[in-house]
């Protein structure tokens, strides 16, 4: 299949970017990133600069790959990361627009590579349970209701890719932050720091310059792990309880 790609090229964070058009011969069994590999090999053969993009595990779990494909974070297939998106979902002759995740809090490093360290800082602000190595009681000393553990897992399944921010019209990081807050708030281990955690994480999220949630739910629609916006409501609840009702 012959495809036309319009890809965002940007030499460095300060440079002014632009779209560049390429044509590439793909095969339907390739993943989207393998199609980029093929294109990059061709560019290298012509001694041109290959397109930079983040990727690593290529099995949908590390969260490194990004790309907004035809206006959708991780492309058209629901519940799928770019690395797991295969070319059979495109047609011969398609024109595909590929852009980086766009948000002021995710500055472009080069081409399609963005800096998502703001997510790390949100976690550093409180996305943990303060327990030093060796302090833990026996695992079974803390029973967890099976459904609660399941709900905590659903939130913890977040891969930190940033698709929620990329998809959100406001570039809000609410789904990411809410997933972590909810994961720990749902578990008995997370109760002690429940209030400070949500306050600090929301505060850091604001400092990083993410947008404010307007409940469009685009994040949920484009999240490769299909994390529910119900967790956002939960975080709101946690936050109000901590700030308004907290001492």
């Amino acid at each position: 299949m012959k495809l036309t790609l319009k890809v965002w090229r940007q030499a460095d964070p300060q440079a002014k970017g632009r779209f560049e058009t390429f044509s590439v011969n793909a095969n339907e069994h390739m993943s989207f990133l393998e199609m980029f590999d093929v294109l990059n090999e061709e560019l290298l053969a012509e001694k041109k600069e290959p397109i930079a993009f983040d990727h690593d595990c290529r099995e949908g779990i590390c969260g490194a790959c990004s790309m907004v494909i035809n206006g959708q974070a991780h492309g058209p297939l629901g519940g799928t990361t770019t690395c797991q998106l295969h070319m059979r979902h495109f047609k011969d002759g398609d024109i595909i627009v590929v852009e980086p995740f766009r948000a002021s809090a995710f500055p472009v490093i080069k081409d399609l590579v963005v800096d998502r360290s703001s997510f790390d800082r949100i976690i550093q602000a409180g996305g943990f349970i303060s327990v030093n190595t060796g302090q833990a009681p026996d695992g079974n000393a803390i029973p967890v209701e099976r459904d609660k553990a399941g709900a905590a897992f659903d939130a913890a399944a977040c891969i930190g890719c940033g698709a929620c921010v990329a998809a959100c019209p406001n570039a809000s990081a609410m789904l990411f932050t809410a997933a972590k807050v909810s994961h720990l708030a749902l578990l008995p281990q997370g109760q002690i720091e429940r209030k400070t955690r949500v306050k600090n994480m929301v505060n850091q999220m604001d400092i990083e310059g993410f947008g404010k949630c307007s409940n469009t739910y685009a994040c949920e629609a484009e999240c490769p792990k299909e994390i529910s916006v119900d967790y956002i409501a939960r975080m709101n609840r946690e936050y109000f309880a901590a700030v308004i009702a907290g001492e």
Partner: peptide
């Protein structure tokens, strides 16, 4: 604020299951 948080706009805009009203 939200506009500035987005920064540059996407060339290709996709509604992704969001409603007209919400956007």
């Amino acid at each position: 604020h939200n506009r500035s948080a987005r920064g540059a706009a996407y060339l290709d805009k996709h509604p992704s299951k969001t409603t007209f009203a919400s956007r």
